[in-house]
Amino acid sequence: MYDAPNLGATVEQKDIKISAKKVQVYYGETHAIKDVDIEVQDKTVTAFIGPSGCGKSTFLRCLNRMNDTIDICRVEGDILLDGEDIYDKRVDPVQLRAKVGMVFQKPNPFPKSIYDNVAYGPRIHGLAKNKAELDEIVEKALRRGAIWNEVKDRLDAPGTGLSGGQQQRLCIARAVATEPEVLLMDEPCSALDPIATAQVEELIDELRSRYSVVIVTHSMQQAARVSQKTAFFHLGHLVEYDDTANIFTNPKDERTESYITGRIG
């Protein structure tokens, strides 16, 4: 099930899920992302690594237009999801985000019951016709979030009452409940202890069978453990993007090498 560091694993060619061309992001006057080109594959875990402030989280938030909620943020260039430009005027970010779910750095369950947390997405998107269907969706999502066994007896308890690791898995379950095609994770383990981290990492590996997962992480070990492809960002540039194994064993760019060996970061 859980295949530890998959450094040597071969990565077969898969469909392109997201493709970005010449993406620029500006925060007011600051040019935060410069000329990023990347193709994210389906059914693959892609890790974004790089030092703090390199723009990896900013870029991640472009992929489901979360940056729209920030007034001063401006995005240029094309980002295509299944060949459709997500920044097209006709695209409704609400529909986009239903397809591209997101999990955040700090677990952020709503101050509602566990059931309502998971049912929130299906309800607003109208995925269930009746209570029975909704129950089914919630159970399925909680199972995929690998937390069903822990909470099935207390679905009415508030989500905020769970432990940190459980909260984060609840948030993952909440995100998968809307049947997304892509799952974005912004440092999902940074607020968790090592045991909870291991559980979440295990879960990410399982999610790969269904979704295209993009994870931003600080920890190179984590990237090596969970991802098949890795992109290294530095000062707003995408420096290198390759199979994880190649990045960690045979980096082509000397900045990547310096970062991996701990000289910059």
Partner: peptide
């Protein structure tokens, strides 16, 4: 939990 729920995903290929 994750694996024993293998119902095929609905083919929801709607355009954005």
């Amino acid at each position: 939990d994750a694996t024993n729920n293998g119902a095929p995903k609905k083919a929801l290929k709607t355009s954005l």
